[in-house]
């Protein structure tokens, strides 16, 4: 067995090993109820990572997802009262549109995606601050329950978030495996010049990848604000690093072309287990990002396809 052969299987092996280790340290961890609530808690992050997967799959990155989610929590909190359930449409449209903008900047103006999405993220953050007056906002609890209560309840012992996550995962998996969009995105990630030489309008599909990333970040933000019954311009801070870690640890490298949304599911579960284990090991919340930073570096170093890189700057 060579490293090349093992590599695609590393993510789920890592997940099993980590789960087993934490389970040995604290058998309570493996109780189904505990695992389910753990999974339910990670859903907003998972949805964000799901969208981010598309941006990374084509060899780009979307650094705006966290600010996007922040902005959406504010928008959802403000407009729930006036728009009711339609606020969800507003949120998703805003995410899709701003993602499209990042894509436009990247494909038409040739601004590298890490900087175009960083800039769009800056815009989102500022919009959030401006709309909220830089304060934390609250939703009307009754209206929230009436409109979006279904998102956060329980069916039996299963948190409803998991159904939402499963539905979105199924949708993304369908896009990735069965649609022209998914096929072209794979071709772009694995070999963009050949896709272009086949007469494909590559730019349009790349823009859609960023739009999907934005839309899913918006859904993540919406769910997060429903869970917390409110919003604030910094409420989702701390999502970006774990979301990128989830995608990369799952096995979609920064160079793109391989991996996909199922990998991101595994990656997110790894992040969830790491988070939980930190509780058991007594690592404070303030220290978590340090660990995620280290994991991120390790994940990039392990997954990146160096044959695709000429120089790194």
């Amino acid at each position: 067995m060579t490293m090349q052969r093992i590599k695609p299987h590393l993510p789920w092996i890592t997940l099993l090993v980590l789960t087993a280790v934490v389970g040995v340290v604290d058998p309570n961890f493996l109780r189904p109820a505990n695992l389910l609530s753990l999974a339910g808690d990670i859903v907003p992050l998972f949805i964000m990572a799901l969208g981010l997967t598309f941006a990374i799959y084509i060899g780009g990155i979307d650094l705006s997802v966290q600010s996007m989610a922040n902005m959406i929590t504010v928008i959802a909190s403000i407009y729930l009262a006036s728009l009711g359930a339609w606020v969800a449409v507003l949120c998703i449209a805003a995410g899709f549109g701003l993602g499209m903008l990042s894509g436009f900047l990247t494909t038409r103006l040739f601004v590298p995606s890490f900087i175009s999405t960083l800039a769009v993220g800056g815009v989102c953050f500022s919009v959030a601050q401006w709309l909220s007056g830089n304060r934390a906002l609250n939703m009307d609890a009754e209206q929230r329950n009436a409109t979006f209560g279904w998102m956060i309840g329980h069916t039996g012992i299963v948190p409803n978030e998991l159904f939402l996550a499963a539905a979105l995962l199924a949708l993304c998996l369908f896009i990735e495996r069965r649609t022209v969009l998914g096929r072209v995105l794979k071709a772009v990630g694995a070999g963009e010049p050949a896709a272009k030489a086949s007469g494909i309008n590559v730019g349009r599909y790349k823009m859609l990848a960023f739009a999907i990333s934005g839309a899913l970040a918006a859904i993540a933000g919406l769910l997060f604000s429903v869970k917390l019954s409110g919003g604030a311009p910094t409420i989702a801070n701390g999502f970006l690093l774990p979301a990128i870690v989830a995608v990369l640890v799952g096995g979609t490298p920064l160079t793109g072309g391989v991996g996909g949304v199922l990998n991101t599911l595994i990656g997110t579960l790894i992040v969830a287990v790491i988070r939980a284990s930190m509780l058991y090991l007594g690592i404070e919340a303030t220290q978590q990002q340090m660990l995620f930073g280290l994991v991120l570096i390790a994940a990039i170093a392990l997954t990146i396809d160096r044959s695709k890189l000429r120089t790194v700057k």
């Binding site: 096929r183 072209v184 071709a187 694995a190 070999g191 050949a194 086949s198 494909i200």
Partner: peptide, 20 residues
């Protein structure tokens, strides 16, 4: 570089120009 996409299989390569 421009002919085939390494990392995609035979049928994915063959239909790349005629996905429609």
């Amino acid at each position: 570089i421009e002919g085939i996409v390494a990392g995609m299989n035979v049928y994915e390569n063959m239909t790349l120009s005629q996905l429609g």
